[in-house]
């Protein structure tokens, strides 16, 4: 009888494990996309040629053309639309904004481009499959003759801001 009882006890222990899994290590994964940091390179500098020191506004389009000059202040010279290349993560969308730093009576405004909707800010324009987005720029230049001073190669500064959409 004692042998039978011990056998019964052993059978119960095997059939009904008294210990359960008390601990668990569970491997998991989070995820993230890593994008190439954005950069902007100027390949052609925007150039309005020459203007006279008189009040007026000229419009440079995106094809190297003075598209409007109602006050007839443009005086020739080489005219070039700006060309910029944005580089970043292939096939990702970016937003682009431009902020002029107007000074010395020479004011930039109303920037235009040949990508997206054509005016700024641009929202959700695509970088191509190799990571580039080429962009031509035009703008209005207003001369305030009371402030502007004659001189060659006067800088017209502006900032291009690009962010991933």
């Amino acid at each position: 009888m004692r042998k039978l009882t011990f056998l019964s006890l052993a059978a119960l222990v095997v059939a009904f494990p008294v210990s359960q899994a008390l601990a668990l290590d569970s491997p998991q994964d989070a995820k993230v996309d890593v994008f190439i940091a954005l950069s902007v390179v100027e390949t052609v500098e925007m150039d309005f040629g020459a203007v006279i020191d008189a009040d007026g506004t000229i419009t440079l389009d995106t094809n190297d053309v003075i598209a409007a000059d109602p006050a007839n202040i443009h005086q020739g010279g080489t005219v070039a639309s700006g060309v910029y290349t944005i580089s970043g993560q292939p096939s990702q969308a970016v937003d682009v904004a431009i902020t002029p730093a107007n000074a010395n009576g020479l004011l930039l405004a109303n920037f235009t481009t040949d990508v997206g909707g054509g005016t700024f800010p641009l929202a959700g324009v695509m970088i191509d499959g190799v990571g580039d987005l080429a962009m031509a720029l035009g703008a209005d230049l207003t001369v305030q003759s009371g402030v502007a001073a004659p001189g060659a190669n006067q800088s017209l500064n502006f900032t291009v801001t690009v962010t991933y959409n």
Partner: peptide, 20 residues
């Protein structure tokens, strides 16, 4: 940046440990 590579859906491994 010197070690990370650009790309989509990088997996970031971690382990959750629980004990009664």
């Amino acid at each position: 940046a010197s070690r990370a590579d650009p790309g989509l859906d990088h997996l970031l491994a971690y382990t959750i440990t629980i004990n009664y």
